[in-house]
């Protein structure tokens, strides 16, 4: 694309990536979560594709595939660590340690170190959605070209 589009994209991309990471990271406190933040980051990948051409994303195809598998496996493993109780039991909630802080009942400002496995599952689903929708965007971008897919 033209130099105007590329310059604007260079300014916007860090903001969009940071916003996507913020939506995923605060999924247990604010509206949003893994799916929504992953879609935001995947739209940033679409912006890269439009502004800089499909050749700029082609070398990340294997990385996206690996991230998709990693997100899916991490999600199932996070569900399986609660298997002494039930599948998807939240064993990390309220016991201290990683994301184990308990919240006081009623209205409160929200604490990042709470909710047990929920933030980890948000990251797993976020990785899966980033890689899945990103792969779709890259595949559509490479479609019709002469180069090997």
């Amino acid at each position: 694309m033209s130099v105007v589009v590329r310059t604007i994209a260079r300014i916007l991309l860090p903001i969009v990536f940071a916003f996507g990471g913020y939506v995923i990271m605060h999924g247990h406190l604010t509206p949003g979560g893994g799916f929504q933040g992953g879609a935001v980051v995947a739209s940033a990948l679409a912006l890269v594709l439009v502004a800089f051409g499909e050749a700029s994303l082609k070398k990340y195809k294997d990385l996206l595939s690996a991230l998709e598998s990693l997100g899916g496996v991490a999600f199932v493993v996070l569900g399986l660590i609660g298997i002494p109780f039930t599948f998807f039991a939240n064993v990390l909630a309220g016991v201290g340690g990683l994301f184990g802080q308990s919240v006081p009942p009623g209205p409160n400002p929200g604490y990042l170190n709470t909710a047990g496995t929920l933030p980890l599952m948000n990251w797993a689903v976020g990785l899966k959605v980033i890689a899945g929708l990103g792969s779709v965007v890259v595949l559509f971008g490479l479609f019709g070209g002469e180069d090997d897919r």
Binding site: G79, F88, V103, P105, A115, L118
Partner: peptide, 29 residues
């Protein structure tokens, strides 16, 4: 807030009470 230690009820339902549903959504994706 007592069981899941989360403020966001929607996220608690999606990832804890109905985790199977989210697993199905990931499979659909």
């Amino acid at each position: 807030q007592a069981e899941v230690a989360a403020n966001n009820v929607v996220t608690a339902v999606v990832f804890d009470y109905r985790g199977y549903d989210t697993l199905g959504e990931a499979t659909v994706l």
